[in-house]
């Protein structure tokens, strides 16, 4: 078996990112879309940590930490928006959120 190189991690990351991307594009449930975004963020984090490990520099991990913080903030705000929206519209279906339509 070939040793595990950063390229492996990058492929894994790309795959996970694509899964999240597909989730964002395909699903209609807002909560699931948010979870897909979390998946994508995790993919990015894997990337960062992989490179951190490759270059033996801790800054990648620090960036990952920031990403976690941003993800937490995003989750809090996003879920608050979902709640508020649900309270008004009784739905979390993105197809019914067309306020930005012309």
């Amino acid at each position: 078996m070939t040793p595990i190189t950063p390229a492996h991690y990058l492929v894994l990351s790309a795959a996970l990112f694509s899964i999240g991307l597909i989730g964002v594009l395909v699903r209609r449930n807002l909560i699931v879309i948010f979870m897909s975004i979390e998946l994508m963020l995790n993919a990015v984090n894997i990337n960062l940590v992989a490179f951190s490990q490759q270059w033996q520099h801790v800054v990648g991990q620090v960036f990952a930490l920031f990403v976690v913080a941003v993800a937490a903030a995003e989750a809090a705000i996003g879920l608050g928006i979902i709640l508020a929206f649900y309270r008004n519209k009784e739905t979390v279906n993105v197809d019914e959120i067309t306020l930005m339509r012309w």
Binding site: A72, A73, E74, A76, I77, L79, G80, I81, L83, A84
Partner: peptide, 10 residues
């Protein structure tokens, strides 16, 4: 800020 925003929104 996110915490406050979440409280206000929710």
């Amino acid at each position: 800020v996110a915490m406050i925003g979440a409280i206000v929104l929710a």
